[in-house]
Structures are given as C-alpha cells and as structure tokens.
Nucleic acid binder design. Structure first.
Length: 202
DNA sequence: CTGTAGATCTTCT
DNA sequence: GAAGATCTACAGG
C-alpha cells in the first residue's frame, strides 16, 4: 500500500494569491535553509486563462555560488545567462538546458552573491503523481520559460510561492543530481526532498 | 527492467 | 568542438 503523503489542509485553489505569499525577504536567507524550507510550500502560477495552479514543492537543490563547482557562477563566472544570479533574493532564474528544457531557480541571499535554489519536483493536486516529478517536467506543465527570467516573484509576473500549510514536513537530504563533474561539491548534501513522496524525481 | 540515443541552446576550450 | 543542474522513446534481455 504505497500511498502518497496526505495534505492535512487542502491547498485553497482560490482565484487570487493568498496572504500566505512569501515575500522577498524570506528568500534572503542562507540558501540551504531556503531550499529545505521550501519543501511543502506551494509554487503558484497564473496560467494564460487566468486560472491559478498551486503546485506543492517536494524536491529542491541549493547552489552555493562562487565556491560551488556545481554552480553556474562558480569562481565568479559572469555571463549573460548567469548575471541574474547576482540579483536580489526572490528573483526568478530560468535557463535552457540541453537545448530544450527550461529549469526554474529562485535567487537567494544578498545582492552580488550568486546563489539560488533549483525547484526539482512538485506535486499538483488532481494530476498523476509523476506529472511534476522532475525540474523540466514541472516547468513544462506550469508554462515556465525565458519570459519569466530576471523578474521578481509576484502576482505581476504570475509566479510566486505561498507558505506551507502543514506544520511538520518530513525532509531528507542527499547529493545533488547531474553534477558528477563538480569534484568535491558533487558529494555535498544540498538536495532536499519530501521523504518517501511519490513525486520526487527518479 | 536496464541501457542508450537523440533533441539542439549556452558556454567554455 | 564538447558537454551540460534532462526527458522520452525504443531496443534488448
């Protein structure tokens, strides 16, 4: 009997953002703390037709800037793609990987400190458990692409995060995925996921 | 069920 | 020219 964790209080699919919306200061904390804290929170997207989709975050990864060989901004690398990582906490960083997949990150910490959290998996109510099980799958479902890059989270751009409604969420830590080239940093425990949840990436 | 090819943009060698 | 913070389809055992 493999039942996925039950949401104690159902997410309100209200037509408007709720007062649980996280402000930018919430993301201006140590990146690993933000990444762990995001598990159980809701990634909210206003779709083209005006409907708001609330997707519960079940997996994240922290990328720790200039000292992290797995981070795009390693050793202060500053390119057209990575410049957004140096901006203010709460800024959306979307980039194209392998020429066809968009991945969603949220910038953290201070301006000038290129750190971010990658959203790796979400669970969308009333959808198959694997619908948002992967960083590229969730962006496809939520229509997240380059248009959002460089904008602050909020109702204006149609993408924001609302706080979790559960009191305690079981969180596990593990090594990050897909950065075997990063040497030592490949072993850092910067991946966070809802323990045993069926929507966590493979 | 495991393995791998292919898609094809951005960055670095 | 090569490889990447990935996913899907399909071949083979």
């Amino acid at each position: 009997m493999q039942k996925s964790p039950t949401v104690l209080v159902a997410p309100k699919n209200l037509p408007e953002p709720s007062n649980l919306m996280l402000d930018h200061a919430w993301f201006k904390r140590p990146t690993a703390v933000v990444a762990a804290d995001l598990i159980g929170c809701y990634l909210c997207r206003r779709m083209e037709d005006g409907e708001i989709v609330r997707a519960m975050i079940t997996e994240t990864e922290a990328y720790l800037g200039i000292g992290d060989a797995g981070c795009h901004a390693f050793e202060g690398r500053h390119t057209p793609r990575t410049s957004v990582m140096y901006k203010e906490a709460g800024t959306i960083y979307v980039y194209l990987i392998y020429g066809l997949h968009y991945l969603l990150n949220i910038v953290t910490t201070e301006i000038g400190q290129p750190e971010a959290v990658l959203i790796r998996a979400v669970h969308i109510e009333n959808e198959p458990i694997r619908t948002g099980a992967g960083p590229a799958k969730l962006t496809k479902y939520l229509h997240v692409d380059k248009r959002l890059n460089n904008h602050l989270l909020g109702e204006t751009v149609g993408l924001w995060v609302e706080n979790k409604v559960q009191d305690s969420v079981p969180v596990s830590v593990a090594k990050r995925v897909g950065i075997d080239y990063a040497g030592d940093a490949a072993h850092w425990l910067l991946r966070f996921y809802w323990t045993g949840h069926g929507s966590v990436s493979k």
